[in-house]
């Protein structure tokens, strides 16, 4: 099994609005894969379906060989999902939050080791023992990404993980993600920031209006459209797609 994730012709209908209109792609093991597209393109919806949170209207998703619709318990044991704009339980300190979440994966010494490793990832110094509602956005994001990486998942699903962060924090989060991938974790992330994705991802899928308009490595895409950056690629790809319709 070389694909950590396959998404085949997946659709999601909210009431009478189709948010995802037949998306297919696959992510190889150990790869950093980016879903990029503007707000409302359907990125979060796709990630939530992969994370077993949303029912798939049609199509199939397989994570490490497990079907998301029928084997959601097994899927949940190999993924780590970090929602967009997520927070933590206000009454807990960073350490207590990590310990609570680690409790779902381990106990005893193993749990302590897991928490210690996550505290290292988060790198919050002695603020790890402050209540999380005193954290800045950057600190919170580091805590959460440490939480997501803590159980050594096979597939990490990160929704807009750097959005709203300053350049330094965003840079550090990207470093953490690269580090994770180096340790063999497959990463699927979404972003509306094309230049960031260009820096980070080995392959990207551009989605717009619930459809994939282009897919490939950043280099391939730039070559294909003879564009200096992914932003230009996206604009041209969307125009091309609209021209075809």
């Amino acid at each position: 099994m070389t694909d950590a994730l396959t998404v085949a012709d997946v659709r999601k209908v909210y009431g009478d609005r189709e948010a995802v209109r037949g998306i297919s792609f696959s992510v190889r093991e150990g790869e950093i894969f980016g879903l990029i597209g503007p707000n409302g393109a359907g990125k979060s919806t796709t990630l939530r379906m992969i994370s077993t949170l949303l029912r798939i209207s049609s199509g199939t998703i397989t994570v490490c060989g497990y079907d998301v619709a029928t084997e959601s318990d097994s899927v949940r044991s190999v993924i780590s999902y970090l929602p967009e704009d997520a927070g933590a339980y206000k009454d807990l300190t960073g350490r207590q939050y990590l310990r609570f979440m680690a409790g779902f994966f381990a106990d005893g010494e193993e749990l302590e080791a897991m928490v210690d490793r996550a505290i290292g990832f988060a790198d919050l110094g002695d603020r790890i023992d402050s209540k999380v509602d005193t954290y800045s956005k950057g600190m919170m994001r580091r805590l959460l990404i440490a939480r997501a990486m803590m159980p050594s998942p096979k597939l990490a699903i990160l929704d807009e993980v750097t959005s709203g962060l300053d350049v330094v924090n965003a840079y550090e989060i990207r470093e953490i993600i690269r580090d994770i991938a180096r340790h063999g974790v497959t990463v699927l992330l979404s972003s509306h920031n094309m230049s960031e994705v260009e820096l980070l991802c080995e392959r990207v899928a551009m989605i717009d209006g619930g459809r994939i308009v282009q897919m490939g490595t950043p280099e391939e895409l730039k070559r294909r459209f003879d564009a200096p950056n992914l932003e230009e690629v996206f604009i041209r790809a969307v125009r091309e797609a609209e021209g075809l319709v």
Partner: peptide, 18 residues
């Protein structure tokens, strides 16, 4: 309401628990 606002519920629902 808090769990929804902080998305902790979404996180919790992807944990490997019934």
């Amino acid at each position: 309401g808090n769990e929804k606002e902080n998305k902790t519920l979404e996180t919790l629902l992807t944990m490997p628990v019934k």
